[in-house]
Amino acid sequence: MTAGGTVAVAVVGVFAELLRRQNATLSEVRDQVSNTHDTNLRDDLDAVMFRIDRVIDNQGRHGEALERHSDDITALRVEIAHERRERLSVEDRLDDHIASFIP
């Protein structure tokens, strides 16, 4: 065997090893991307992103509803405080009226 033949065999051997390693790497990537899914990974990601966008939109509406509820509760507190003041005022006047009849 000549030196050129030896070099050619070595180059073919190195090339075959590089192809084997690349094939192993590609198989590993394919397993991580496709696994056993029946659908395309990109389609799955698009569906997840759509759902996340819907959740974010709903959170905004939820925040608006909470703000309206807070405003309603504040208004109720103001009305209750007003009703309490009026009730106490009537109670004081009634006590004074009753006291005027007691000798």
Rank of each mutant, 00 (worst) to 15 (best):
M1Q: 15
T2F: 10
A3T: 14
G5I: 14
T6M: 14
T6C: 14
T6W: 13
T6I: 12
V7Q: 14
V7M: 10
V9L: 15
A10N: 13
V14F: 09
V14L: 10
F15G: 02
F15Y: 11
A16M: 09
A16K: 02
E17H: 13
E17T: 05
L18A: 02
L19C: 12
R20T: 10
R21W: 06
R21F: 05
Q22P: 02
Q22T: 09
Q22W: 04
N23K: 12
N23E: 11
S27R: 05
E28Y: 04
H37Y: 07
T39F: 02
L41G: 14
R42F: 08
D46I: 09
V48A: 10
R51A: 14
H62T: 08
G63V: 03
E64G: 04
E64Y: 01
A65F: 00
A65M: 01
L66P: 05
R68P: 00
H69C: 02
S70F: 00
D71W: 01
T74G: 04
T74K: 04
I80E: 00
A81R: 12
E83W: 11
R84W: 11
R84C: 07
R85S: 11
E86L: 13
S89T: 12
V90R: 15
E91M: 06
E91N: 08
D92M: 14
D92V: 13
R93G: 09
R93Y: 14
L94G: 03
D95F: 10
D95Y: 06
D96Y: 09
H97L: 15
S100Y: 04
S100N: 00
F101N: 04
F101D: 02
P103F: 08
